[in-house]
Amino acid sequence: MATVPLSEAGVLDAALTPGPGALLRRRVFGHASLMIGLGILAVIFFMAFAAPLLAPHDPYDQDLARRLIPPIWHDKGTWTYPLGTDGLGRDYLSRLIYGSQISLLIGFAVMAISGVIGLLLGISAGYFGGKIDMAVTFVVTTRLSMPVVLVALAVVALFGGSLTVVILVLGLLKWDRFAVVIRGATMQVRALDYVAAAEAAGASTPRILFAEILPNIMNHLIVVATLEMASAILLEAALSFLGLGVQPPLPSWGLMISEAKAYMFFSFWLIAIPGVALSLLVLAINLVGDGIRDLTAPENRA
């Protein structure tokens, strides 16, 4: 039985005081909405990556003899098709599971394309200022004044709807919020001493931009990235719903809702299920984004 002598109380104190890593873990795990968001996201990611293992049937396999079977909570539901079948007799659970791949792919790809464009525009406008800032602000203002949904629909109609076209069109349209936020964040960081120090030390401009400024605006970048990802997923669903996005027979959640419109009155679950999935995914991404913003806001640092 070792008792702690009084002289070692300081050491004990130090051992009991959590380090910065432990504090961060405590803040992350104590943040309820962030944890809920991460939990839902983990489930949907698992669905997307393990789709071939999880899906009980082929999502494209049609059979008109077994069309519009209701889901399991209905009296006439069967465990063979837990979420029922759609108007063409395809297993709804399998389509829902494969649909998560499309939403996640759209979200990440659009976020990556628009993020790179917006980051380059925003960081150069914020760092260089003057004429470059004016030019970027003008380009952003022009882009903002054109209605996204309408322009996206028109362009998709021109090139024909496909996953690639939708990703490219949305990626090339949705960089405005990235540019605006990164520009503002860069302007704040640019005025700080360590940027002046790097300039005085003779660091090259790309080095200052990407090694000094970028790491310090990362939290803003991540928060906008989550917002944009959520918005890209909603936009794809809307485009597919309007018939000018991802084309059948792909199991896009927006397209599933569109195909279910004809059966709305008697088979509302066909609309409810993909809609709830879509809302949960977007909700989860927004919760994660809000959580990261809370945790990285300077006023919340302990």
Binding site: A237, A238, S279, L287
Partner: peptide, 18 residues
């Protein structure tokens, strides 16, 4: 506010119609 921003508008519209 958080829930509202997650609902797809066209889907919310269909739910209202239903």
């Amino acid at each position: 506010a958080v829930i509202g921003q997650a609902l797809p508008s066209f889907w919310f519209a269909l739910v209202l119609i239903m």
